[in-house]
Design a protein around this nucleic acid. Structure first.
Lengths: 340, 340
DNA sequence: TTGAAAGCGCTAACAC
DNA sequence: GTGTTAGCGCTTTCAA
């Protein structure tokens, strides 16, 4: 069995309390005792039992992360990177990360309820906020700590990080207009997602600002997967007078759109321009490399972990709400519209 | 504060012991008491404190999973799916999953040591076994429970699941030969990985069986990423008399190879054939869709969780070592070699 | 059929 | 400076 604080106490001939305090560097312990205790701890390879510490502290030192996926599986590179971001920062801060995947809906919400009721985690990180977000409503009402990646439609009085999608999409559309595009297709995310509004708004605004009009028939929505982008792009490219540029609201859908175009024999970046959002690692190595908006996914994950941990420990957040600005990464998936 | 067993005891006017036993359905409790206790538990929304249970049981009910990545980030769809598989099965079995990402090497091993010494997890799931695997050596010597996805070079006397890579690659090569290919390029995984040997062996064997020879200059190794596949394929396609078929040892590298070929103006499936391994979800929607070997990644994750949990609970494993057979998924990335 | 008491490993209030 | 005592919430002897 592993050595406990008791074993050390025995060894150095002191009480358990003294050992505990020596180890935790209380200043009412004599330097000699401290030293002896520490020495013994090292020799005996002592490690505190996190289990006992947690019970006593009434804290799990664990962050909960319920990944919303369609079906139980997940293979979204965006989330992989995000996960690594929160996980690694959490580890650095001495917290564990408890992950599970749920399909949005009742089942998902009950996962939150369970974790809360069983006090299994100290707080949550929420992603892909919805316009009206059950998870947030619930956690607020339960008065349970959480931070979110994203805002909600109203009352976003909670700590969050978000990117300025509106601004980002503005950059993309501006760029496409500068290239000469006049007719846009949009592959939007599901409408209940908050960032869907922002991204669409950004697109519309810039188009109108340029004195152009966005044909609402060329705005389709899909599920953020490659397959979804593929299917919707087939539709967009199949209409009589198809768009010369397709703005996809994430990289995965953009990849799907590229496949659809290529299948039709089109050259992406020449016959049609396609853009994404996120700049996942694959975006650099697709064919052609994808023009997209960069967000520091890994870093955002880290920020959220840090914020949540501070929240749990009742420390001050320097910034309770932060909004990041994505940057436009120009690669080869866009070009001037084909002459015709 | 949440209700405890004590609160219930008070409410029903029984001792804490009785309540505990009633809740755990001991049969030395009168049916009436049991009923009253249960009723009270429901009304008071009682949930046992996992923290307390764990301390008492001296078990963390947690599975450890240290994801080997190059650098702290990860965005490999293979692992995403795998992770979902182990995570969801673990949840069903009442276990938490503790994830972190580490770069293989000393830092990684010390993560294992820490988890073991702090008794933070009850056991580990190990992936991407190496020919000589530190992690396995360590866990064996520490006598700590683990299961692995993959074998090691010698002495694989431990519970594992593995796919028969040799067999799988045989299917691929057979298929390519049937299409008429005679000159193969191979993008192999890092040589220290165990499955690297198996896959190469499978390739070599089938080629030789057909009375052909594998040009060792056309066997390159890469790091399992898309970028890596891209770079190596550029080399393979740049030699004077390039291969007509490129066998990549995972899907990501195959995608990279496709990009490289396309960048050269080649049509994949016509000017050059390319195959992968894993059948990640994206393989179906690349352009062209990728011919590859299917492994049930999600399911394998689930199997491993289940095996590990049984191990931890000292239950019998029906099968301690299982080897799966991948199946060939034919899509459009291969065709007959170009006439010349 | 039930309850008192001990203990899992640790921290902390309070005395000395 | 240090030790005694209690307690975190639960399970499990053991005795009644």
């Amino acid at each position: 069995m592993a050595t406990t604080i008791k074993d050390i106490a025995q060894r150095v001939g002191k009480s358990v309390t003294t050992v505990s305090r020596a180890l935790n560097d209380y200043n009412d312990i004599s330097p000699q005792t401290k030293e002896r205790v520490r020495q013994a701890a090292i020799e005996m390879e002592y490690r505190p039992s996190v289990l006992a510490q947690r019970l006593q502290k009434q804290r799990t030192d664990t962050i909960g992360f319920v990944l919303p996926t369609f079906g139980p599986r997940f293979s979204d590179p965006f989330f992989s990177e995000f996960l690594a971001g929160i996980g690694n920062r959490a580890t650095q801060l001495g917290f564990d990360l408890l992950v599970s995947t749920r399909t949005p809906g009742e089942e998902e919400l009950s996962a939150y309820r369970n974790y809360v009721q069983e006090r299994r985690v100290d707080g949550f990180i929420i992603v892909r906020t919805r316009k009206k977000d059950d998870r947030i409503d619930y956690l607020k009402s339960a008065n349970y700590p959480f931070v979110a990646f994203g805002r909600v439609k109203e009352n976003f009085d909670y700590p969050f990080v978000d990117e300025d999608s509106e601004f980002g999409m503005g950059l993309v559309v501006e760029y496409l207009i500068r290239l000469g595009h006049r007719k846009f297709g949009v592959i939007a995310p599901p409408m209940n997602l908050m960032f869907s509004s922002y991204r669409l708004k950004g697109i519309r605004m810039k188009i109108e600002e340029a004195g152009l009009a966005l044909d609402e028939n060329l705005v389709v929505t899909s599920d953020l997967t490659q397959r979804g982008g593929y299917i919707q792009a087939q539709i967009l490219l199949g209409v009589p007078d198809p768009p010369t540029a397709i703005v996809a609201c994430n990289d995965l859908m953009a990849f799907g759109a590229m496949s659809a175009a290529q299948e039709k024999g089109m050259i992406v970046g020449k016959d049609v321009s396609i853009t994404g959002f996120d700049d996942i690692p694959m975006a650099e190595h697709s064919h052609p490399p994808l023009t997209t908006l960069h967000q520091p996914i890994y870093k955002i994950g880290g920020m959220l972990s840090e914020m949540l941990v501070k929240l749990v420990l009742n420390e001050d957040l320097k910034k309770r709400q932060v909004i990041l600005h994505p940057s436009l990464i120009i690669r080869q998936s866009c070009g001037p519209p084909p002459q015709n």
